[in-house]
Structures are given as C-alpha cells and as structure tokens.
C-alpha cells in the first residue's frame, strides 16, 4: 500500500481528529473500502486511538472494512419499491452474479448492497449502480444493465 497517498489525505485535513469522517471518506474513495493498514497509518498521523477511528468507521453505513467491488449496486428496499416487486429484482441480480446481498463477486467486479429508499419512488423499483439510477427495472432488463459495467 502506498502510504504517501494516506499522508496526503491526512495533510489535506490538517491531521485533525474533527475531520476524521472526511479523511475516511477520501480513503474509501481511493480503495473502495477502509484497509487496515490505512487506518493504522491514520492513527499514527493523527495521534488518536484506533478505537476512535473504528468507532466512526463501524457506525456509519457508508464505510466498509471489507473490500468492495469496482462497482457498487444499491437495490432500493423502500416501501414503494418493495410493493413494486424489488425483491424479485434483487433475487435476479443475486442469481446473475452468484452472490448474496452484502457480498462481493470473486472477481471484485460488483458489490451488492441494499439501501433504504433512494427518494425517487415514482421510478420504483429502483436500482442504483455507482452514480447511475435505473428506474422501473424489470427482471429481463437486469443482465443488460449489468453488462454495462466492467
């Protein structure tokens, strides 16, 4: 791991503990997850206990300590999407990728995670991949959507 990258991130926030969330977000943007070595290095750089860092990292849903795939699939599990049959879409994606919700494919291509309401219920059922929103998703559309991401 390139610790200079971590140093740069820490320096950008003036190595303040109050900027911990921002630092962790930047690390995650870099590696797709929060690697242990990176957190250990942040502990030295900020001179704070590891427990403080992990307390924050395990509290917020956006952070993950396990490696994530290159693309993150968020399936909306909100009420409207549920009524519109998102569960079948989710099952279809699981079958297509051969993983369960919360897991990552072996080739690190996709991670599949549920999300509670994306706020665009008129498009239900909704699937979000990286920054792209797919509305009114049908089972037969799933594999074509997934093919767009390498």
């Amino acid at each position: 791991m390139d610790l200079e990258v971590i140093d740069k991130i820490a320096d950008r926030y003036k190595r303040k503990e109050s900027a911990l969330i921002g630092i962790l977000q930047d690390i995650q943007a870099q590696y797709n997850y929060l690697p242990k070595e990176a957190l250990l290095h942040i502990r030295e750089r900020l001179s704070i206990p590891l427990t403080h860092i992990l307390g924050v990292a395990t509290f917020y849903n956006i952070f993950t300590l396990k490696p994530r795939g290159r693309h993150l699939i968020n399936v909306c599990m909100g009420t409207a999407c549920h009524v519109k049959g998102v569960v079948r879409i989710l099952e279809k994606i699981e079958r297509e990728l051969g993983i369960k919700t919360g897991e990552t494919t072996a080739d690190l291509r996709f991670s599949l995670e549920p999300i509670r309401c994306l706020g665009c219920c008129s498009l239900a059922p909704v699937v979000k991949i990286d920054g792209d929103i797919y509305g009114k998703v049908k089972q037969e559309k799933v594999s074509r959507i997934l093919k767009k991401y390498e």
Partner: peptide, 24 residues
C-alpha cells in the same frame, strides 16, 4: 482507549479494534 463501542443499533457492542488482542 483500548476498547470502544463499535457498530450501531442492535449490533452495538464494546470490543477491541478488529476483535483481536489490542496492542495498547
């Protein structure tokens, strides 16, 4: 600060970082 609260909601627990022996 060898131990702290981790996770949240019903998962909340007190533990050491990474649930292994703490180095501090």
């Amino acid at each position: 600060s060898a131990i702290a609260f981790f996770n949240r909601g019903t998962e909340r627990e007190v533990n050491t970082p990474y649930e292994i022996n703490s180095d501090v």
